[in-house]
Design a protein around this nucleic acid. Structure first.
Lengths: 196, 196
DNA sequence: GACTTTGCTTGACACTTGTCAAGAAATCTC
DNA sequence: GAGATTTCTTGACAAGTGTCAAGCAAAGTC
């Protein structure tokens, strides 16, 4: 295995460890030592592989992005009816809401941080675009299957659905049981209104 | 002036100072000393009037809440047509987006923090509810004036519009010029779809 | 097997943080 | 105006932060 790959592998291992800690504690309360403690590494290693803290976090964000935006692609491709697509989409959405709550909490945290920390902004904007495109793929496919066309543009559709999802993530901390059903109900209300 | 009022007055002065600093720096980067430095007080005073940091911040959030949720009430009450209401609503919305950007940044930051910090959750939830009710007043009035009824429930309507607004706030850091117009365009797209 | 490079540990540094306590200053009370 | 109370300043503390450098261990190279 080549040297550059080994470095990248370590970076990824560190990023995954960091993401675990970040997802639990949030950006503000996560220190490099805490990240190192929750991993098999010592705190010095972090500085061997990353210039500084923001470099690590921004690497984490970029790494995270590669994992999150293709979640629904399979559903989009295999669905043969609007209902099937909607059910599959909602299923995957509630699944990731429940199973990957920390990652979603972290995402909304980091997006908020990007308003104050310039260095995070490009990475956050890139992920936002990726998510927007993901939503757009779902919506255009949904329109195709219903013989309609989207009645809002991509950024609007994303902002709307993201608003619903964020409320669900924020609410999840308070009521883990009811939130998933509420979310699916709301999206079912909204989805038909986004095509015409 | 009574003693209890004087204390409350000082608390409010401190909270306003703190909110200014919090709005600029965000939750993670704001320290009590920074708050004190940007005010006429010394850092010891903060602990004279507030038990600890979270007590101060939670007071700030509660104080902030009283100022933000009645912003649109005048527009709702005076509008005599759906168009007038929409124009007034959009005007106030872009106005507050531009003029009170730090407060809005702080709000989204704090809502994210509340996912990690239990003590913030009740206050954040209370504000979310207040905002939801505000949106609901606007939407029901809009429905009245157009002779329709809302086609989504209050939490859904709030989540949708809040999603649009949050995107605008996040995007405001990158492109301050274009964002306001984009927001109004998107809300104009969406508003008619929320009634039927 | 000696030597060099790479990877990692350890401990230290300068600094910031929240918190608190001792005492000065101001205000109030009589 | 003396004494008591409230209000504020100052300085200190312990803990935690990001960062870095010196040196140890391991791996690779000849």
């Amino acid at each position: 295995m080549s040297g550059i790959d080994k470095i990248e592998r370590r970076r990824i291992a560190l990023a995954e460890s960091a993401l675990k800690t970040l997802g639990e504690l949030g950006y503000a309360r996560t220190s490099l030592r805490e990240i190192a403690n929750n991993s098999e590494f010592t705190h010095g290693v972090v500085h061997y592989y990353f210039r500084d803290k923001i470099d690590l976090i921004s690497y984490c964000v970029r790494y995270y992005k590669t994992k999150c935006a293709q979640r629904y692609d399979e559903v989009v491709e295999t669905a043969t009816s609007a209902d099937e697509l909607a059910v599959g989409f909602l299923g995957k959405m509630t699944q990731t809401l429940v199973e990957e709550t920390p990652m979603h909490k972290l995402w909304y945290d980091l997006r908020a941080q990007s308003m104050f920390e310039d260095q995070l902004r490009p990475d956050v904007a890139a992920i936002d675009l990726l998510l927007e495109q993901m939503i757009w793929r779902i919506l255009t496919r949904y329109a195709d299957l219903t013989g309609t066309t989207p009645s809002v543009d991509a950024p609007t559709a994303y902002a709307l659905l993201d608003g619903l999802f964020e409320q669900a993530v924020v609410g999840y901390a308070a009521n883990p049981e009811t939130v998933a059903d509420l979310l699916t109900g709301r999206i079912q209300q909204v989805l038909p209104k986004l095509v015409a």
